[in-house]
C-alpha cells in the first residue's frame, strides 16, 4: 500500500513539472479541468468504493459549489477564498440532506433519488435567473488572484495539484483509521456494522457530506477557472460521467479517482484532436464500457501493478550490477 502511494507521488511530481515543458494555454486549461475532475472523482471513490453508497447526482453538488462561490465572490464581492469555502459549506449541507434517503434505501432506489436531486438542482440553475443567470449564463467571475497579482494557468495548475494531494492525504488517513474501517465494514454488511456499535446513519451522513464537499470544492474551483457558468456542465450526463470516472479509475483504489478523473477528461480531447472530432463522445463511451466489462477493478490497480513491475525490474538490475 505504502509503495503504491510513493509511486503515486513520483508520478504526480512528474506531472507537476508538465507546465514547464508544455505551456500551451489550452493544454493547461484542460489539465486544470482534469485535476478538478480528479478531486471530484476522488470524492466519489470515497462515497461509493469505501462507504458503499451511490450518487448519480454529483453534478448537483458541483453546481452548488460553482454557483455559490461565483455568487458570493462576484455579486457580494467576497474574496475568492471565502467564496470557495462558502461553496463547500453549502454543498456539504446539501450532502447531509441527500444522505437521509440512504438510511432506508439501497443501490438502485438510492441512485434514483440522487438522479432526481441532480435534476432538481439543474432545474433551479436554469430557472433561478436572478441568482444564476439561467440559460444566459453567469459572467464575470473573478479569476484566481492574490491581491493584484493574477495567477497564471501554471500557478493554478500547481495550486490545484496541491489541493488534490491534500485531499488524497486526508482520504488516506481517514481510510486507515477507525472511521475508514467502519466505512469499509458498512460497505460490506451494514447490519453487522450496527451490531459492532457503529451508527451507520452517522457514517452515511459523513460520507455524503465529504463527497459533496469535494464536489462543491471542484465546482467552485471550476467557476473561478472558467470565469463563466452556464447550466450545461451540470446535467445528469455530467453526473454519470463523474461516476464513470470513479469506476474506470477503480473504486477500491485510493488513486482511482485521480486516474479516472484525469483519464476521462483528457481522453475525449485526444480523440477530438486525433481526427475523431465528430465521434469523440461516442468513442469515449464505448471505451468506458469496454473498460468496465473487461477491467471491473478499474485502471488504477492495473497502473499500480505496472509501476511495481518496472520498479522490480530496475531493482533486480541494480542487484546484478
Amino acid at each position: 500500500m505504502k509503495k503504491k502511494i510513493i509511486f503515486g507521488l513520483i508520478g504526480l511530481a512528474v506531472i507537476f513539472l508538465f507546465p514547464i515543458i508544455d505551456n500551451n494555454t489550452y493544454h493547461l486549461y484542460l489539465l486544470n479541468r482534469a485535476l478538478i475532475h480528479a478531486i471530484l472523482a476522488t470524492g466519489l471513490v470515497f462515497l461509493t468504493g469505501f462507504a458503499g453508497q451511490i450518487s448519480l447526482g454529483q453534478a448537483g453538488f458541483y453546481a452548488i459549489g460553482a454557483y455559490s462561490s461565483a455568487y458570493f465572490s462576484t455579486r457580494l464581492g467576497l474574496p475568492i477564498f471565502l467564496g470557495i469555502i462558502i461553496g463547500i459549506g453549502i454543498s456539504v449541507l446539501a450532502g447531509f440532506l441527500l444522505s437521509i434517503p440512504s438510511f432506508k434505501l439501497k443501490a438502485f432506489f438510492l441512485s434514483l433519488v440522487t438522479i432526481a436531486f441532480g435534476q432538481i438542482i439543474n432545474m433551479l440553475v436554469v430557472n433561478l435567473q436572478p441568482i444564476t443567470g439561467g440559460p444566459y449564463g453567469f459572467f464575470g467571475i473573478p479569476f484566481y488572484h492574490v491581491g493584484d497579482y493574477m495567477l497564471s494557468f501554471e500557478n493554478v495548475f500547481w495550486l490545484l495539484g496541491v489541493i488534490l494531494l491534500f485531499t488524497l492525504y486526508i482520504m488516506y488517513k481517514i481510510k486507515h483509521s477507525h472511521y475508514g474501517r467502519a466505512m469499509l465494514a458498512m460497505n460490506s454488511d451494514d447490519v453487522a456494522t450496527e451490531t459492532c456499535g457503529i451508527s451507520t446513519k452517522k457514517l452515511k451522513i459523513a460520507a455524503f457530506g465529504f463527497s459533496a464537499g469535494l464536489a462543491g470544492l471542484a465546482g467552485a474551483l471550476y467557476a473561478h477557472l472558467a470565469g463563466f457558468l452556464s447550466p450545461e456542465p451540470f446535467t445528469f450526463f455530467e453526473s454519470s460521467n463523474f461516476v464513470a470516472m470513479a469506476v474506470v479509475g477503480g473504486l477500491r483504489d485510493m488513486l482511482g479517482g485521480v486516474v479516472g478523473g484525469i483519464g476521462l477528461t483528457l481522453l475525449p480531447e485526444f480523440l477530438r484532436f486525433g481526427g475523431w472530432e465528430n465521434y469523440y463522445l461516442m468513442v469515449t463511451s464505448i471505451i468506458v464500457i469496454v473498460i468496465i466489462i473487461f477491467m471491473p477493478k478499474g485502471l488504477a490497480p492495473l497502473l499500480g501493478n505496472m509501476f511495481k513491475k518496472i520498479f522490480r525490474v530496475k531493482s533486480s538490475n541494480t542487484k546484478t550490477l
Partner: peptide
C-alpha cells in the same frame, strides 16, 4: 457475517470503534 473486505484484525478493530476518542481532525 464477517467483513470480507477487511483483514482478520481489522474485523475485530471495527468493533473497537466506540472505544476511540480521537475525532477526524486528530486522525488527519
Amino acid at each position: 457475517r464477517l467483513f470480507d473486505n477487511l483483514s482478520v484484525i481489522e474485523n475485530v478493530l471495527v468493533a473497537r470503534k466506540s472505544f476511540y476518542k480521537s475525532g477526524p481532525i486528530s486522525v488527519v
